[in-house]
């Protein structure tokens, strides 16, 4: 266990505002192996993003710590590249320049200008954005922006790639397409990935393990599910696969039975498995 590449140990997090302390996370422990693809799933407000931000170094845990490749995390850095839900490209920079700003900073003095240029082009090529190098973010679609965001993160050669609901803002078709791309890239690069999602299908399709979080306050990890499906995975074939259905059911039953969120979806428990697809679609919205 101590050999884990990314290790989150005994993380507590509480936000204080106006003298009132609000416990968000309590005793979160997770070990992730090198090259593993982990999804963090849970109801909204359960603190998934807080966990990710602590790993990224953007937030500091109240107690406990995160170790990546033998080093404790205490500030943000390019070794933990983040893909934001709303892409957060800089709107005054072109597609190329948005990747360049990261590459220039991280590889200055380590790679020549020509090498940097090739590396930027290579990463944009990987997400199929070579055709739009000189476009501004305002001139490309949401899916394309997210591709550039992924290219920017990959170009940092991170030890851990952190994805914060990377497909959340996209329509269903674009989302499926981009998920396939991410799987293809993952099969080439074998990054260590930690992804936040609300989407059960997405979690099962992409992950090696799904980490399910209990509802807050004082949220923690409720259950971890190993997804033992062969790669490369194909969404059409998997739709009829018994193991796939079983994993989906596991996650759904965790979310809707064990950790049923009371207020927003009152009748979720009564619904049959046949309507589960629509449920997960509704959750994304």
């Amino acid at each position: 266990m101590s050999q884990a590449y990314l290790s989150i140990s005994r993380v507590d997090m509480a936000f204080s505002r106006g003298g009132v302390t609000n416990p968000v996370l309590a005793d979160v422990n997770l070990d992730i192996q090198r090259g593993e693809y982990i999804s963090l799933i849970g109801h909204s407000g359960c603190g998934k993003s807080t966990v990710l931000n602590i790993v990224a170094g953007l937030l500091r845990a109240t107690s406990g710590g995160v170790i990546v490749d033998g080093r404790e995390v205490n500030a943000p850095g390019p070794d933990r590249a983040l893909v934001f839900q709303n892409h957060s490209l800089l709107p005054w920079l072109t597609v190329y320049q948005n990747v360049e700003i990261a590459v220039q900073k991280i590889f200055q003095g380590k790679r020549s200008a020509a090498e940097q240029r090739d590396w930027i082009l290579h990463n944009l090529e990987m997400v199929s954005m070579s055709h739009a190098l000189d476009r501004l973010p305002a001139e490309i679609s949401g899916g394309m922006k997210q591709r550039v965001g992924i290219a920017r993160a990959l170009a940092m050669e991170p030890k851990v790639l952190l994805l914060d609901e990377p497909f959340g803002a996209l329509d269903a078709l674009t989302r499926a397409h981009l998920q396939d791309e991410v799987m293809r890239i993952q099969s080439e690069l074998h990054n260590t990935v930690m992804m936040i999602t609300h989407d059960v299908d997405e979690a099962v399709l992409l992950s090696d393990r799904i980490v399910m979080m209990t509802n807050g306050p004082s949220a923690t990890i409720g259950q971890v599910l190993d997804i033992d499906l062969p790669r490369p995975r194909d969404r059409l074939e998997l739709a009829d696969d018994a193991r796939y259905t079983h994993y989906r059911h596991e996650v759904l039953s965790f979310l809707y039975e064990k950790q049923r969120k009371v207020e927003p979806i009152g009748s979720a428990r009564a619904r049959s498995a046949a309507t589960a697809k629509r449920e997960s679609a509704a959750m994304r919205a």
Partner: peptide
Amino acid sequence: DYRNVARVIR
């Protein structure tokens, strides 16, 4: 988000 981007790439 822009601040966070700047912090991640230091």
